[in-house]
């Protein structure tokens, strides 16, 4: 039996959650079903329902983390970042086996943006991010676009702080590698 939340006493927050539900619920279900089907799950619909319910419980709990003034794309990306994490939870695949190396992580961060050469190849960078595993792209998104600290990301995602750092470092590394690969091939 689900642990139902009754958390909203603020009418404006209630309206926000309702807006997200009516705007994105069906879309979330489709994303989740698509992901579970691609992972070969036999009961993709039921798994998707579990993931979407868990997502909305998190959205409701952390509703104040959503800034509606930034536009619908921001709201959508935030919601789907949580959804992708909940999908991993259902798949029991939300742990990182990458060895956390603080020195490596800080080294990556320093030159990362410059190495992207984003002004010269913006569209390539967008495509590389699209192709990146969503656990890395969404963690990078929450850290850079939502300006959340690793602790905040860890709380919302139900991860350890080390896992968040690992995903940030790995995401940057994979992004650079894929862009170098694109240059080599192109």
């Amino acid at each position: 039996m689900l642990q139902f939340l009754f958390t909203l006493t603020d009418e404006s927050n209630h309206g926000k959650v309702e807006h997200i539900y009516y705007t994105y619920h069906e879309y979330m279900m489709k994303c989740a079903v698509s992901k579970f089907q691609s992972m070969g799950r036999t009961n993709a619909l039921y798994d998707a329902e579990d993931a979407v319910q868990a997502t909305f419980m998190k959205i409701t709990k952390y509703i104040n983390a959503i800034d509606f003034s930034r536009g619908e794309k921001d709201v959508k990306n935030y919601c789907f970042a949580i959804l992708s994490n909940e999908i991993l939870n259902v798949l029991s695949d939300n742990q990182e086996d990458f060895e956390f190396d603080e020195e490596f992580c800080s080294e990556i961060e320093y030159n990362f943006i410059e190495e992207l050469e984003i002004k010269e190849r913006y569209d390539e960078v967008v495509k590389a991010i699209e192709a990146l595993d969503e656990r890395y792209s969404t963690t990078l998104y929450l850290a850079l676009c939502k300006e959340m600290t690793p602790n905040e990301i860890a709380n919302i995602m139900g991860l350890t702080v080390k896992t968040v750092y690992t995903r940030l470092a790995r995401g940057r590394k994979l992004l650079l590698e894929s862009l170098k690969g694109a240059n080599f091939n192109g």
């Binding site: 789907f80 943006i113 002004k119 991010i129």
Partner: peptide
């Protein structure tokens, strides 16, 4: 400006990925 551009790319890339999934 590179950082802002990357944030924009990140937002666009993440959004596009979910659109494709759906």
């Amino acid at each position: 400006s590179n950082l802002e551009l990357f944030k924009q790319a990140l937002s666009e890339g993440v959004s596009n990925r979910f659109d494709k999934m759906a």
